[in-house]
């Protein structure tokens, strides 16, 4: 009898331990997000024969194979305080194009924003933007069926207090793209820095 009770105790303890392990496993699994296809071939940096300029067409989709991003693009305007709007905090958040900037492929800096994290929902669409390097490719599908392919020229992390407004929104002499998200150390429920990817148009199709 005593032996059987001992077994019962061991069974109970094992059951409880198993359950606690399973709970932690579930938590970890929900935090991860499947990554997209990884393309090893990297295009050469910089346009060779000068910028090709496209006509105005609103971006519909953004693809960044290097970090598994393939997202629809929404329009963003201005918030009440004069800052740029950001996409809503949702489970499957999207990137957003700042509608007062040029469309991708037009002359000037086209600006697309996305979240790095979306609170309780976990990773944002631009979670791994910091992994981009000079020479990586970015493709923007346009509403008119065309596409604009950009090549990363630089990736910068800047303090929000010293946001380089002129470098991001200032005039340039070719079609360029800026991808913006947050980064750096956390403070309260936000981040102290912005991560900005600068890219230039490499090829375009109508």
């Amino acid at each position: 009898m005593i032996r059987l009770s001992g077994r019962a105790f061991v069974t109970a303890a094992l059951a409880a331990l198993l359950v606690s392990c399973a709970g932690h496993g579930g938590d970890g699994a929900s935090a991860t997000r499947p990554s997209g296809t990884h393309v090893s071939a990297r295009s050469s940096a910089g346009p060779a024969n000068g910028p090709q300029v496209l006509g105005r067409s609103v971006p519909a989709r953004l693809r960044i194979p290097e970090i598994g991003v393939d997202t629809p693009v929404m329009r963003l305007g201005l918030a009440q305080d004069g800052s740029v709007q950001v996409p809503p905090i949702t489970a499957h958040d999207r990137a957003g194009w700042y509608q007062y900037s040029p469309t991708p492929g037009q002359m000037g800096p086209s600006v697309i924003l996305g979240h790095v994290t979306v609170g309780a929902y976990g990773d944002g669409v631009f979670r791994h933007l910091d992994r981009l390097r000079r020479g990586d490719g970015i493709t923007v599908r346009l509403e008119n069926g065309g596409s604009a392919e950009f090549t990363v020229t630089s990736v910068r992390t800047v303090a929000k207090a010293d946001f380089p407004t002129k470098e991001v929104y200032g005039d340039v002499d070719r079609p360029e793209l800026r991808l913006i998200t947050c980064g750096g150390p956390r403070s309260g429920d936000g981040y102290l820095d912005n991560l900005i990817v600068f890219a230039a148009l490499s090829t375009a199709s109508h």
């Binding site: 201005l78 950001v86 000037g108 800096p109 929000k160 407004t165 929104y169």
Partner: peptide, 17 residues
């Protein structure tokens, strides 16, 4: 080239997760 230049830095990250 940018019609209306926003003020400040975009807030593109929420860390309550």
């Amino acid at each position: 080239q940018v019609g209306v230049v926003p003020s400040g830095a975009p807030d593109t990250g929420v860390t309550t997760s």
